[in-house]
Design a protein around this nucleic acid. Structure first.
Length: 271
DNA sequence: TCTATTTGACCACT
DNA sequence: AGTGGTCAAATAGA
């Protein structure tokens, strides 16, 4: 599958939806409320998908082949130093909320680093043999910047990782809309995206199929992916559900890492 | 009591 | 030998 064409198509849809929104804003609001809602969902879907591409494709992934010399021991402190998993980094103003449940298992002072590095593993490491881990390190004070390095993909069945929650923003009676993913297309995946399925450990990465289904979901997951800012001070609290966004314009702030220009630049550069 | 975090120890890697 | 990744006992909190 040509990822470039997917991106270009998504960009077209995104920009069309944006224009549609502008046009609708100029009309009688009461008449087009339904259309507005639909347009919001369309635009949000494009935004979400572009966000995925932005963070997954445009951020180069270092693939680290492991040292087979690593051995597993039973004694304390013995471990496989490097796993044969992919790794990738993400730098953000806040420790990224990625929709997975992590358990901190270590903290180290790193040489020449101002801040200590925190080590996390998937909560389902043992019950579901999920090998995903991540390291979070603060790299800057003002504004706070955190570098998160992910190792391996989730193989656990984590609810938040397998479904995208896209409920309507301004219509309380609306049923939630889930954006489901399957493994139809080969594409990279990252844990920092709360809405990307990672249930497969195969080399075929999950990719959004833009299949939208309506389901009722627990309210605690409402607007999960639209959380504008995760808790900064205590990363261990990153599973908290942040308040829902009430305004359309908050969409942009919800995707601090999503840069439409980055995607456009990437498309041009690759020509 | 159960679960998550902290932290010192241990060991692989360079 | 120094550094960094992981383990697991101790501790904290719900």
């Amino acid at each position: 599958m040509d990822q470039r064409k997917v991106l270009e198509e998504l960009l077209r849809g995104y920009e069309s939806a944006t224009q549609l929104r502008v046009v609708m804003n100029e009309k009688d609001e009461s008449e087009i409320r339904t259309l507005q809602s639909l347009a919001k969902n369309v635009l949000r879907s494009f935004t979400n998908t572009l966000f995925l591409f932005d963070s997954h494709l445009l951020s180069p992934t270092k693939s680290q082949d492991s040292q087979e010399s690593c051995k597993t021991f039973n004694r304390r402190g013995c471990y496989k130093r490097k796993r044969s998993k992919e790794e990738w980094e993400k730098v953000s103003e806040a420790p990224s909320v990625d929709g997975h449940h992590w358990r901190k298992y270590g903290q180290k002072e790193i040489l020449k680093a101002k801040y200590s590095r925190n080590y996390y593993r998937c909560t389902h490491k043992y019950d579901q043999n999920c090998q995903a881990t991540k390291q979070v390190q603060r790299i800057q004070e003002n504004p706070p910047l955190y570098k998160t390095t992910y190792f391996g993909h989730h193989t656990c069945n984590d609810l938040l990782s397998s479904e995208i929650i896209l409920d309507s923003i301004d219509s309380p009676s609306d049923t939630s809309i889930l954006l489901s993913f399957n493994n139809s297309f080969p594409a990279p995946t990252k844990q920092e995206c709360p809405f990307l399925s990672s249930s497969s450990s195969s080399s075929i990465y999950p990719s959004p199929s833009l299949m939208i289904t309506e389901e009722t979901i627990p309210s605690c997951y409402d607007d999960y992916m639209l959380s504008p800012q995760p808790t900064l001070d205590d990363y261990s609290m990153h599973n908290n559900v942040t308040p829902p966004l009430d305004h359309w314009d908050d969409m942009s702030s919800a995707f601090s890492d999503f840069d439409i220009d980055d995607i456009k630049r990437w498309l041009n550069l690759d020509d």
